[in-house]
C-alpha cells in the first residue's frame, strides 16, 4: 500500500516534470480562475462591511415637546430600553444640547452668550439593534415612540441608506449567480487544459491498459497530478491576491479615496484562505476526473 502511494506520487511528479509547459498552463489557468472568484468574493465582503459600518450609525432621534423632569426620566428610560428593536438609549437634556451646539460652534461660541440655556429641545437618541437597522425597524420604533411619549419631531436614518441596503442585497444575489457561473467556467477551462495534457499522453494511457494496469492504477496518478496542480494553483492565486491586496489596493485606496479610519479593507481570513487552496485541489481533481473519463476506457 505504502509502496503504491509512493509510486503514485513519483509518477504524478514525474509526469509534471515531463510536461512542464502543459503543467504550468494548467496551474496558471486554475490560479487565474480561483483569483477571479476570490476577487469577487472580496469585493462583496468589503461592500457588505461598508454597509454594516454605515448602518451602525442608524439611529432614531426623538425631540421632546417638554423636557421630562428628573423624576419622570428613569421611567421613560426604562420604557424606551424595553423596545425590542432598541439597543441603547441616550438622553440629551436641553443643556447637553446647548453644550454640544457650543462645542460645534467652537470659536463662534460667543454668539450664544445670553441665550436661554433651555432653548434647545430635550431629545432621546435610540440606537437600533443590528437586525432592525432598516426601514422596517425604524417604522416600528417610530410607532412605539408615538404611543409612549410626546414627540415633537423625529429624525432617523436617511432614505439613501435604505437604497444602499437594497443594492447590497442585489450585489449578493448577482455575486452568487456570477460566482457559480465563474466556478463552472473555471471547471470547464481546467478540465479542457487537463484534457490537453491527457491527449499528449494518450499513448501512455493506452500502453498502461495494454499491460494490465487496473483502472484505479491508471487514474490515481492523474488525479493526484490534478490535485497537486490545483494545490499549486490555489497557492499561486492566494499569493497573487495577497500581494496585490497589500501593495496596491489597500495602500492606494486608503490614501487617496477613503480616510484610513473610515474603512479597514478586509482580506480573506485564514480559514477562507485555506478554503481557496482546498477549492483549487477540488478543481484539479474534478477537472482530471471529467477528462479521464474520455481517455481511459477498456
Amino acid at each position: 500500500m505504502l509502496e503504491n502511494i509512493r509510486y503514485f506520487f513519483r509518477r504524478a511528479i514525474r509526469n509534471m516534470q515531463q510536461w512542464p509547459l502543459l503543467c504550468s498552463a494548467a496551474i496558471l489557468t486554475m490560479a487565474v480562475a480561483l483569483a477571479t472568484v476570490a476577487t469577487f468574493f472580496l469585493v462583496v465582503v468589503n461592500v457588505e462591511q461598508l454597509a454594516a459600518n454605515w448602518t451602525r450609525e442608524i439611529q432614531v432621534i426623538a425631540y421632546l415637546e417638554d423636557a421630562p423632569t428628573a423624576r419622570e426620566l428613569p421611567g421613560l428610560f426604562a420604557k424606551l430600553e424595553n423596545f425590542p428593536e432598541v439597543e441603547k438609549v441616550k438622553y440629551i437634556s436641553p443643556s447637553d444640547a446647548m453644550a454640544r451646539f457650543k462645542s460645534r460652534l467652537a470659536d463662534e461660541a460667543s454668539l450664544l452668550e445670553g441665550v436661554d440655556r433651555n432653548l434647545l429641545p430635550a431629545s432621546f437618541e435610540l440606537m437600533l439593534k443590528a437586525k432592525f437597522r432598516n426601514q422596517d425597524g425604524i417604522d416600528r420604533v417610530i410607532e412605539r415612540l408615538d404611543n409612549t411619549i410626546n414627540v415633537e419631531d423625529l429624525r432617523y436614518g436617511q432614505k439613501w441608506l435604505e437604497r444602499f441596503n437594497t443594492f447590497v442585497g442585489m450585489l449578493r444575489f448577482i455575486s452568487l449567480i456570477l460566482g457559480s457561473f465563474l466556478i463552472f467556467a473555471a471547471l470547464f477551462i481546467v478540465s479542457n487544459t487537463i484534457k490537453l495534457t491527457l491527449y499528449a499522453r494518450r499513448d501512455e494511457l493506452e500502453i498502461m491498459a495494454l499491460v494490465g494496469a487496473t483502472m484505479r492504477f491508471i487514474k490515481i496518478p492523474f488525479l493526484l497530478e490534478g490535485a497537486l496542480q490545483g494545490l499549486l494553483g490555489g497557492v499561486v492565486s492566494l499569493g497573487f491576491l495577497a500581494i496585490s491586496f497589500h501593495l496596491l489596493i489597500k495602500r492606494s485606496l486608503t490614501s487617496f479615496w477613503l480616510t484610513p479610519t473610515d474603512l479597514n479593507l478586509l482580506f480573506m481570513t485564514p480559514g477562507q484562505q485555506l478554503m481557496l487552496v482546498i477549492a483549487g485541489v477540488m478543481l484539479g481533481i474534478l477537472g482530471s476526473l471529467t477528462s479521464l473519463r474520455r481517455f481511459v476506457r477498456f
Binding site: E204, A209, L210, V211, G212, A213, T214, F298
Partner: peptide
Amino acid sequence: IPYLRRKIGVVFQDFKLLQSRTVYENVAFA
C-alpha cells in the same frame, strides 16, 4: 480485463514504446 492482460504479452509492428521514457522505464512499466 486487466487481470486477463497480465497473462498476455503483446508486441506490435510499431513497438508502442513511450518515447519520453528510458529503456529501463519502458520495461518496468509493465
